[in-house]
Amino acid sequence: MNLTLKIWRQKSPKDKGQIVEYKVNDISEHMSFLEMLDVLNEDLVAKGEEPVAFDHDCREGICGMCSLHINGEAHGPDRLITTCQLHMRTFKDGDTIFIEPFRSKAFPIIKDLVVDRSALDRIQQAGGFISVNTSGNTQDANAIPIAKAAADESMDAATCIGCGACVASCKNASAMLFMSAKVSQYALLPQGRVEAADRVTNMIKQMDKEGFGNCTNTGACEVECPKGISLNNIARLNREYLKASI
């Protein structure tokens, strides 16, 4: 298929940036979206032009590096997938596709479609862990009984890959879905309860410092999240924070 691409080009963090139009031809429907961009970049390099910078790593939906706001949605129009898992069969011959970086004050643009998402890492570092060493005298994994339902919910929350699609989709550029997944995965387990109050307090403090917006429960994050993290986690986060503050 032949496509028209409208891609955000920006040379550096300070550059103003603009949408530039490109044509790509003979794209196979079996290609992933990133492979389609590889084809474009090969074309550009052959013509002596600067290739489009975009993030990627695993290309199998686990690392969370690939970003991109495609035709107005984080990770494109498909559901429960990352951009590397988006296939060109989702589009039709002759389509025009807008490709923009994830936009948020907390995600400054480095170049073209590459944004700096380390704000999410700093939130994680502020409390998204359990302070015990696992080497040497590791306890038997089954020594603490945990209800199946709690274990399942915790595991669901732990599938968050920190991709930032929730921030990119939210009209307020809020990181609450990410936060809530990171808080919930520990809050549901006895090992996580010990530091629960400090964890949620410190992580929220860091989140606010990074310049993310405030959640208004629009639910856009939940729809666009590649891992299906539920808004129920945000309610849990709100409960945890209230508990920690009184």
């Binding site: 949408i19 107005g72 949605e73 923009e100 307020n172 917006g213």
Partner: peptide
């Protein structure tokens, strides 16, 4: 919330998710 995204998207398909 408005200031948390100083540069808006050129295309934003908000109807698809909220």
């Amino acid at each position: 919330n408005n200031s948390s995204r100083p540069i808006k998207y050129t295309k934003n398909n908000v109807g698809a998710n909220s």
